[in-house]
Computed example of a mutant assay.
Amino acid sequence: MTTPVIFIHGLWLHASSWQPWVDLFTERGYDASAPGWPGDAETVEQTRADPEALAGRGIDDVVEHYAAIFATLHAKPIVIGHSFGGMIAQKLLGLDLAAAAVAIDAAQIKGVLPLPLSTLRSGFPVLSNPANSGRAVSLTPEQFRYAFGNAISEQESRELFDRFSIPAPGKPLFEAAAANFNPHSPAKVETGNESRGPLLLMAGGKDHTVPENVVRATLKQYRHSHAVTDIVDFPDRAHSLTIDAGWREVAETALTWLKEQNL
Rank of each mutant, 00 (worst) to 15 (best):
G39H: 06
F84H: 13
Q46N: 10
R48H: 05
G36M: 09
V63L: 07
V79E: 09
A41T: 01
L73S: 04
L92M: 06
Q46G: 08
E52L: 08
P77F: 10
A49E: 11
A68H: 11
L73H: 08
P77W: 08
R48N: 13
D50W: 00
G36V: 07
A89Q: 03
E27M: 13
E27T: 14
E45K: 14
G58C: 05
T26H: 11
H82K: 05
A49R: 13
G56T: 08
F25K: 02
V44K: 06
L54G: 03
A68P: 08
E42T: 13
F70I: 15
R28P: 00
S83L: 06
I80T: 04
A71M: 05
T72P: 09
H74D: 15
P51Q: 05
I88T: 12
A75Y: 00
A32H: 10
D61P: 00
E27D: 15
D50V: 12
A34H: 07
A34C: 09
P51G: 08
T72V: 03
Y30R: 02
L95M: 15
D60H: 11
W37V: 07
V79A: 04
H74A: 14
L24T: 12
I69Y: 11
G85P: 09
E64K: 14
K76G: 04
P35T: 09
E45S: 13
F25Y: 15
I88F: 05
G85A: 09
H65G: 13
G86Q: 08
F70K: 06
P35W: 11
G58N: 04
Y30E: 03
A41H: 15
D40R: 00
I69C: 01
A71D: 15
D40L: 10
A53T: 00
G94K: 09
L24V: 04
F84G: 03
D61Y: 06
S33P: 01
A34E: 12
V62M: 12
T72M: 07
A68K: 15
P77Y: 11
L54H: 03
K76F: 01
E52G: 13
A49M: 10
T43Q: 10
S83Q: 03
A32V: 11
Y66K: 10
I69G: 01
A34N: 04
K76A: 12
L93D: 03
G94M: 12
T43H: 11
E52P: 00
V44P: 09
V44S: 08
A75V: 01
G39K: 02
D61L: 07
K91D: 00
L93C: 08
L92R: 04
A67Q: 14
I88M: 07
E64S: 15
Y30Q: 02
G56L: 06
A75Q: 14
D31M: 11
T26Y: 06
G94H: 06
A53R: 14
L93M: 07
T72R: 15
I69E: 12
I69M: 09
E27N: 13
A41Y: 12
